[in-house]
């Protein structure tokens, strides 16, 4: 296997009881690549993301990260391996401020021998937060504000800024702009472009055709729990992608799955 491959999945499958939410998904992405995942509601996009990020345990299949086979027991494992995820439901605690949220679950601490009562390094976390925000070009009036006092765009930026703060090896964004206004969407897209310039690999789950065509190199289409197309951006257009999403078209190599 080439060292150039960031993420590879083989026959990745997830069943929820009798519901086959994801069936034998074979996926591969290279370093520096930005890949979009598209598909209708319930097509298996978010399920796919949840299996990679360890939020759920897959029914079967294999996942390799940078050539190494991985079995994440939970989201923290995935994070430690370098997968940083911006979830569709913003994984932010409303009553905490920006540094608290950025470092939630992996706080900088003193006196680690105290176990759960180890002491928080507030200063260090604030410093790293500022650095991370600057790197992504995110601007937030006051990082000591609790999240509930922020606009949707600011919240999303905080969620994305996590990525920059922790030098991730793979960033996954699940519908990052679904709930945002035009200006805020532009801001998030700028951050994504910044990541592209820095060569950070990214998986973008999105419904927004313009955004996808604008930002990514490659588009993977999911339909009814299966991958039905793998399209290079240069070789396709919006209508073509829609045809794959709705089931009007299926790529020959995925023919068998298009039942």
């Amino acid at each position: 296997m080439s060292d150039n491959v960031v993420l590879r999945t083989q026959a990745l499958t997830k069943h929820y009881g009798g519901v086959h939410a994801l069936q034998s998904a074979n996926f591969e992405m290279k370093k520096g690549e930005h890949v979009a995942i598209m598909g209708d509601n319930g097509a298996g996009k978010s399920t796919f993301v949840r299996q990679i990020t360890g939020v759920e345990q897959r029914t079967s299949g294999n996942v390799w990260l940078y050539g190494e086979e991985v079995n994440f027991a939970g989201p923290l494992d995935a994070r430690e391996a370098g997968i940083e995820t911006v979830f569709q439901t913003l994984a932010l605690a409303d009553d905490l401020d920006v540094p608290d949220n950025l470092f939630l679950g992996r706080e900088k601490t003193f006196a680690d021998w105290l176990g759960p009562f180890r002491i928080l390094d507030y200063k260090g976390m604030r410093k790293a937060t500022m650095a991370g925000l600057e790197k992504t070009g995110v601007k937030i009036p006051n990082i000591r504000n609790t999240i509930q006092n922020m606009s949707g765009g600011q919240r999303q930026c905080v969620a994305i800024a996590r990525t920059a703060t922790f030098h991730s090896r793979l960033t996954i964004m699940d519908e990052p702009t679904a709930a945002l206004g035009v200006q805020e969407t532009g801001q998030v897209e700028n951050i994504i472009r910044t990541l592209k310039e820095q060569g950070e690999p990214l998986i973008l789950v999105s419904h927004n055709m313009r955004q996808v065509m604008d930002l990514v190199d490659r588009i993977i289409v999911f339909r009814r729990g299966r991958i039905c197309a793998n399209l290079k951006k240069e070789e396709t257009d919006g209508q073509d992608v829609v045809a794959y999403i709705t089931g009007a078209k299926t790529q020959p190599e995925y023919e068998e799955s298009a039942t």
Partner: peptide
């Protein structure tokens, strides 16, 4: 911190690896 995080958004706390 985790006590507050769980009360604030249990799902977020879980996804953050707490």
């Amino acid at each position: 911190k985790h006590t507050y995080a769980i009360g604030s958004n249990e799902e977020a706390a879980r996804m953050s690896g707490i």
